[in-house]
Write a protein that binds this DNA or RNA. Structure first.
Lengths: 231, 231
DNA sequence: GCGACGGTTCGGCGTACGCCGAAGTATTCC
DNA sequence: GGAATACTTCGGCGTACGCCGAACCGTCGC
């Protein structure tokens, strides 16, 4: 009875509150139950029940730490499914003609580069993290940190990570990516990298989602500056 | 508010009856309202309401002819979405680990070859239809029909289309495919082709869906007998 | 220890929805 | 024209579900 299974799965996303939760979790992070409740605008008890159903249904996984319950999507394929669904839903009513090619293009583009909150994820995000570590711009000796020469080098490229500008936010932070399952750079540096890449036109958004496309000039710059070549 | 749209779309598939309707329509054919009602086991009035909702939601399109209301999926992307969803739902609970590669493999495989009811669809189905027409095994002079030499040639290959075996079912019938939007061969010959391909090991099922994989021996046989090469 | 806090469970309320049968409308066949 | 057919609309029934507030339970900070 695949029918029941399909209906069950769809039923998990058929409620606006649960849908909002899943969309929020598309950023790949693990949220606490309280954060999600506040974000979607329901009381904690209501959210708790929704979250239990989503976990029972296999869409979410939970991780209990002390008095917190962290929730994230069950895996990359779950994220992909929800994105596909949301994308399809968003353009219902629009011209359905040119969707065939678009779909696959966007899919592959998103695997290459996409935003995770305000920084870069996807294969580009991981590659950037690797490159900066390899070149000594960032060290991982006692927690992630930008080295002194690294700071100067970044300034030369045009990326400003003046420590005065960070509030309470860590300068460099690790963030686990969906498709790569490897950490990439978040924090102030991660955000600065993304902002610089967008400002200089190395990357441009494609569609309304979080997918990014590497422009021709971006291909050159990423190769020359960071030694990155994505096939 | 993409949240509402996602929930609306999911809500269309969240009901077992509607899910069953959509799964039935995955064969690409246009069903009448009555056929669907009987197939999913509800009374006509109930089905009518479900169908109206599915049409209003953009998942189905209708075509009125006389006192009949024909319904089919809105397009190839709709079929793909429902299949993705059903596939995902079917393996919820199984090991989610090796799904990354599998997913893309299956996707491309399904575009190449898949079953449509009991015959072959996808690019292989279309290519087979073309090949048989080009070789004079089948003609399209006055409706599709198997030629006399064609019948002998098929018998030599090992495909039995003895006219005594057909009941009221047409020997050859055209069927519009989703991904190719071109007719392929249904009817008794279509079913016989599929059965032969499975029996001889030219094709093998992949996963639980309708996707088929062309085996190495199948590649050779399809090339030698029908002159077919799929990239 | 004790309070504060995050999360869960439970009871109750209201709505939405799926189902059917009966009546109504349109089309086709004779 | 009249009967059979295909579908739709409507009314009514029952259930399922989403929401909240209140009470309860474990964890953390002092």
């Amino acid at each position: 009875m695949p029918t029941q299974q399909l209906a069950r799965l769809a039923g998990l996303l058929a409620d606006p509150t649960r849908a909002a939760i899943c969309l929020a979790l598309l950023d790949g992070r693990a949220w606490t139950a309280g954060e999600l409740a506040h974000h979607v605008g329901v009381v904690a008890s209501t959210a708790s029940e929704h979250l239990s159903r989503l976990v029972a249904g296999g869409l979410l996984v939970e991780e209990r730490q002390g008095r917190h319950r962290y929730l994230r999507l069950a895996g990359p394929e779950t994220a992909a499914l929800i994105e596909d669904l949301a994308t399809f839903a968003a353009k219902s009513g629009a011209a359905p003609a040119p969707r065939n090619l678009r779909g696959s293009i966007r899919r592959s583009a998103e695997a290459q580069a996409r935003t995770c909150y305000d920084h870069l994820a996807g294969r580009l995000g991981v590659a950037l993290a690797d490159a900066l570590l390899a070149r000594g711009v960032v060290t991982d000796d006692a927690g992630l940190a930008v080295t002194a020469p690294g700071r100067a080098w970044l300034a030369g490229v045009g990326i400003d990570v003046d420590p005065q500008r960070r509030g309470s936010r860590p300068l460099v932070r690790s963030c686990l990516d969906w498709t790569e399952r490897r950490p990439h750079l978040a924090g102030v540096l991660g955000a600065a990298l993304r902002a610089h890449a967008m400002d200089t036109g190395w990357l441009e958004p494609v569609g309304t989602g979080r997918a990014l496309r590497i422009t021709p000039s971006g291909v050159g710059a990423l190769h020359d500056l960071f030694g990155i070549t994505l096939d």
